[in-house]
């Protein structure tokens, strides 16, 4: 899942960036309101973490502009202003969730997972596909109840295809979801990941749609 993080506090931003990446998210971190507002138009993010007190432009005003423009990205507001009125204002401005500082990194991850599941119409964190079970909360993959060890990128790719069950995802879309701006992407990186997933979960785990892209396999 690719997340846009807009947070001006260096230590908090760095912690969320590194921590969420460790927990299997792809994070783009921006420290300025103006740049953050524009960044959401550049990439298809699965969710946005938005601070309120931002240099450049206030988080609430950014959110209002996004919603007026019809941007659908789920937004989790993360701010030091934790009183009820502020929460109400944030939610009424178009936020999907609200967390006060200090927060737990794992809770942020859990809420991001919940927000993205909703976006893909997945009701529970456990997604079953044939003999394969995927826990979107722990990012654990089981084949016939046996846990399969997968790399973070392989897990991300498999989760992405599972969430988009009836869609064919192009290579460029997959790349966008799997890599942040700072990552270097090898030209055959996606093919390698697909190959590895098939080796671990079976040939039919992922379907190749010729000249278009990939889709979750028919099991």
């Amino acid at each position: 899942m690719r997340i846009l993080l807009i947070e001006d506090d260096k230590l908090i931003g760095d912690g969320l960036n590194v921590g969420l990446s460790k927990l299997g998210f792809v994070v783009d971190w921006i420290q300025n309101g103006f740049e953050g507002k524009e960044a959401v138009t550049q990439t298809a993010y699965d969710a946005v973490i938005l601070d309120i007190g931002l240099p450049g432009q206030n988080g609430i005003s950014i959110l209002k502009e996004w919603r007026e423009d019809g941007r659908p990205e789920p937004v989790l507001i993360l701010t030091a202003q934790g009183d009820v009125n502020q929460r109400i204002l944030g939610l009424e401005s178009g936020a999907d969730d609200y967390m006060s500082k200090p927060f737990s990194l794992k809770e942020v991850a859990a809420r991001l997972n919940a927000l993205t599941r909703r976006r893909y119409d997945v009701l529970t964190p456990i997604i079953k596909h044939g003999d394969i079970t995927f826990n979107s909360q722990t990012k654990a993959v089981f084949l016939k109840n046996k846990q399969i060890v997968m790399s973070p990128k392989e897990t991300l790719l498999y989760e992405l295809l599972l969430m988009n069950k009836n869609k064919v995802l192009s290579k460029s879309v997959i790349e966008q979801k799997l890599y942040s701006w700072d990552d270097e992407i090898l030209s055959n990186a996606i093919e390698v990941h697909v190959h590895n997933i098939r080796a671990k979960l079976g040939r039919n785990a992922i379907k190749t749609i010729s000249k278009i892209g990939y889709q979750i396999g028919d099991l």
């Binding site: 760095d14 912690g15 921590g19 934790g82 500082k101 927060f103 737990s104 794992k106």
Partner: peptide, 12 residues
């Protein structure tokens, strides 16, 4: 709140 949040997230 902010400095505490920073400490907590870095610790995690």
């Amino acid at each position: 709140r902010s400095p505490l949040a920073a400490l907590k997230v870095q610790l995690e």
